[in-house]
Design a protein around this nucleic acid. Structure first.
Length: 238
DNA sequence: CCTAATCTCATCATGGCCCCCATGATGAGCTCATTAGG
């Protein structure tokens, strides 16, 4: 089972690779199979009498016939119950549907293959979405870091300016125009905290007492905020 | 151990519709596919 599993995995990974690399897929030197060759073969087949590839059982009708809707429905039901096909079930199904057991086996093989490729496709879509949103998230974070740095520089400048003003006149205005010594709390919603954050002196919103140089950011992340939209439109992403 | 049955994978062929897609069928498997029963 282990080796079988490994083998399957290898084949699975191989199937992800470029189709052009798979020309020599199973075991031998196989030449490329362009559409033209297909057509040529078909034409030759039509011209000559039968012959060709894997003609089954000789029999009357070399053409393959589509299974009827009822047959397919039955097979689908059975497949949904159990994807593997034991001999007993195969024979039973074949008898019930008036098919050759071999046909039933082939149908299950093909059905499994299709099921698997569908699953792979779905998985790929999911992974791609996750990847895309991770990239988006990363961009967002980088953007916010930049903004925070800018704001920090501005805030520091402001503090410096106010400090120097404070040293010249020790009379602070009673209207709260001077924030020195009280700390500044920048709080807000995702749409306001980072992009156009509003600053409030502590105490107004039930703030704590902060030290002289305290400047506290209270971020709340949200990815649909204006700053992201702004950023993406800036870089032509939306 | 041997062998038949079965699996996956890649590919071909055909039929239904408009040139490509869905689907039935076949063959290989390379440290020579794996698994199960005798």
């Amino acid at each position: 089972m282990d080796r079988y599993g490994e083998k399957q995995q290898q084949q699975l990974f191989a199937s992800y690779e470029d189709a052009s690399l798979l020309v020599a897929g199973s075991g031998g030197a196989q030449e490329e199979r362009p559409r033209a060759r297909k057509r040529r073969r078909r034409a030759a087949r039509c011209g000559g009498g039968g012959g060709g590839g894997g003609e089954v059982d000789g029999g009357g009708d070399p053409k393959k016939r589509r299974l009827s809707d009822d047959q397919v429905e039955m097979l689908e039901l059975s497949f949904r119950e159990e994807r593997k096909l034991e001999t007993g079930r195969k024979v039973h199904l074949a008898a019930e549907l008036g098919l050759d057991p071999k046909q039933v086996a082939v149908w299950f093989q093909n059905r499994r293959a299709r099921h698997k490729s569908k699953l792979l496709e779905e998985e790929f879509t999911k992974l791609k979405q996750a990847h895309d949103s991770a990239i988006l998230h990363k961009c967002h974070l980088e953007n916010e870091v930049l903004r925070l740095k800018e704001r920090l520089v501005v805030a520091e400048e402001e503090v410096r300016r106010l400090r120097s003003a404070g040293t010249t006149s020790h009379t602070a205005s009673a209207e709260g125009g001077d924030l020195v010594g009280r700390g500044v709390v920048c709080a807000g919603s995702p749409s306001s905290s980072f992009s156009t954050g509003t600053c409030q002196p502590p105490g107004v919103g039930g703030g704590d007492h902060l030290g002289d140089d305290d400047l506290m950011y209270v971020p709340e992340y949200g990815y649909a905020d204006n700053s992201v939209v702004e950023w993406f439109s800036l870089y032509g992403l939306i």
